[in-house]
Design a protein around this nucleic acid. Structure first.
Lengths: 235, 235
DNA sequence: ACGGTTTCATAACTCGGTTATGTAACCAGG
DNA sequence: CCTGGTTACATAACCGAGTTATGAAACCGT
């Protein structure tokens, strides 16, 4: 059970190969034979290390959560918590935009052959673990929300509940956008995501003007971070 | 092209069997041999009528969308458009809760590849006309939003954009709840969905008190419709 | 060094989507 | 009514992908 950090860690390399092939070639590339060939082993490695493809895909999904956590953790905290929330939203969306296949697996939308259960599969241990790591990715949103409440930008409220609302709105936008419902990237951000963020901020207690200001501040910070003007391109 | 309403309409019966088996036994029941056996034909019927399992699954996904439209269309319009939005939200959630497997397929299959018209065109003037047909499920939300704007409950705004925000928030909540992130049904509704609705309404221009009142009105109407007190049970 | 365990290769097995082929039913037109 | 073509299937085979059976080599504690 103790995963030894060997130089030739086949287990980790299988997951890495899965994520890479997933982004390169789509979900149909998530095959035991392909992954084994990629790593240079036989398909048996999949079964000694994971017990089957399902568990390997679960591991990929978990890796997606971890990666999302890392993205969000990179968003620093400024003295404007509402702007930080906008930055987290942009980052959340950007992560999904850069690795749509990975997060499709993570969010359970798509699976190779459509064979794995996605919704209402909470009775499995893997599902619960994934949910737990979802909470970890969720933490930065909770902290920013708490700071917004403390700063008087949001009305006094349970920070988890308020953050869950923000997370729902953000996740919904990202999911629908990834499904192609909101058109080109820049359009979806400007027409839906930013107004949605302002709506949420105002609804949670902020003023329209201050919310707009924070949205602008986050946009400027984003431009500075990404380095280009338009930041519309996904890659 | 003309689908004859034959007594032995194998095509329709295959889709029906797929939806039924999907809800009963999960996604793994979506197999050509199982469906054929269920209907009492050979697997060839799948290929003469659909061309393959993928197209049949597409048909199932489309059926889910239609079913969602029917659910939402059943929500009547009252003189309180914001309460109607709350009712639509409860209904949307209820539909997914009752057939999670079906909607997992529906939401997973709405691919950008399919040129089915979606929200993408709604934020541009020219695309709206053409997109109207493909958005039947979304239409009631847009109409309620428009009425809320007209009634002065929401600030003047593009009703499609505002509705897209509401849809994002709602869809995000439903998706995350179905993934098990929000605990038991009643808890998720009271702790997240209702506050989220109030947040959105207030953010779009409503007052806190009136939004709360509309939420209560929708809750009362829901109790009356479903007939039981708690309405927490999913079935 | 040695017995047990782990890791993996080879190859066979199974299941499920798909295709090849044939046939019976239906449907023109003569 | 007969006939040729098309459609809707059944039967059975094919094939790819997950899985398993088996065995060997490497690793490991004693």
């Amino acid at each position: 059970m103790s995963p030894k950090p060997r130089a030739t860690d086949v287990k980790a390399r299988l997951v890495e190969a899965a994520i890479r092939l997933l982004d390169e070639s789509g979900p149909e590339a998530l095959q035991a034979r392909k992954l084994a060939a990629e790593v240079g082993v036989s398909t048996m490695a999949v079964y000694t290390h994971f017990g089957g493809m399902a568990a390997l895909v679960d591991e990929v999904a978990r890796a997606g959560f971890v990666r999302l956590s890392e993205w969000l953790a990179q968003v620093g905290e400024t003295d404007d918590p509402v702007a930080d929330i906008f930055s987290l939203a942009r980052t959340y969306r950007q992560a999904v935009a850069e690795q749509p296949q990975l997060f499709a697996v993570t969010f359970g939308q798509s699976a190779p052959g459509g064979k794995r259960a996605t919704l209402s599969d909470l009775t499995t241990e893997e599902g619960r673990e994934a949910a737990q790591e979802g909470l970890e990715a969720f933490a930065p949103i909770v902290r920013a929300t708490e700071r917004a409440i403390r700063a008087g930008r949001f009305r006094p409220a349970d920070e988890y509940q308020a953050a869950a609302q923000l997370w729902s709105a953000l996740h919904g936008f990202v999911t629908l956008e990834a499904s192609g419902h909101f058109g080109p990237a820049e359009q979806g951000i400007d027409h839906i995501l930013l107004p949605l963020g302002i709506t949420m901020a105002v609804g949670l207690g902020d003023t329209v003007d201050r919310a707009r200001g924070s949205a602008e501040a986050a946009k400027a910070a984003w431009r500075a971070r990404t380095g280009n003007a338009g930041q519309g391109g996904n890659d």
